[in-house]
Amino acid sequence: HQARGQNPSCGDDLQVMLNVVQGQVQDIRFSGQGCAICMASASMMTEAVRGHDVAVAQQLHQRFRAVLTGELEPDAAQLGKLISLAGVRRYPGRIKCALLGWHALMHALGDTP
């Protein structure tokens, strides 16, 4: 499965590729270019979801997004290492950068059986 995420306003452009076997993300990779926030978030995303069920990846995305949009406090979100990106929420123009890889992942998972 794969999907591309682009943010034309800043030039971030990512391709997320993953292998899902029996509802589990067996392998995930990304390639592309973007700002440091975009690249760090995508890299941490791959570590956070590899080896976990698709449902776990979807729930983690929801919690991460909720933290960045101010709907959920970081300490309550159970984000693991992703909590280090919680400060991005203070910079509204950068939230899209941190979420780009996650949006691509969700699109890629949208075509999983």
Results as ranks from 00 to 15, higher is better:
43 S>Q: 10
44 M>D: 03
38 C>L: 04
65 R>E: 14
39 M>L: 12
26 Q>R: 14
52 H>E: 13
49 V>C: 10
46 T>Q: 07
60 L>F: 07
67 V>K: 10
50 R>P: 04
56 V>Q: 15
47 E>Q: 14
53 D>P: 01
39 M>N: 08
74 P>C: 01
37 I>G: 09
32 G>T: 06
35 C>E: 12
22 Q>S: 14
42 A>W: 04
37 I>V: 15
49 V>K: 12
24 Q>E: 14
54 V>T: 11
70 G>K: 07
67 V>P: 10
27 D>G: 03
51 G>N: 02
63 R>C: 04
42 A>T: 13
52 H>M: 09
27 D>L: 04
55 A>W: 00
32 G>D: 07
71 E>Y: 02
72 L>Q: 12
63 R>D: 09
39 M>P: 00
27 D>W: 02
40 A>R: 14
44 M>G: 06
32 G>H: 06
27 D>T: 11
65 R>D: 09
22 Q>W: 02
60 L>E: 07
32 G>P: 07
76 A>N: 12
42 A>C: 06
33 Q>G: 14
48 A>L: 06
59 Q>K: 15
32 G>M: 05
23 G>I: 11
42 A>I: 03
31 S>Y: 00
70 G>R: 06
69 T>R: 13
66 A>R: 08
50 R>L: 02
68 L>S: 00
30 F>T: 07
48 A>Y: 09
39 M>Q: 14
63 R>I: 03
23 G>W: 13
71 E>A: 12
78 Q>W: 05
51 G>K: 03
72 L>F: 01
30 F>N: 09
40 A>I: 07
48 A>M: 09
25 V>Q: 11
50 R>W: 01
32 G>E: 07
54 V>M: 07
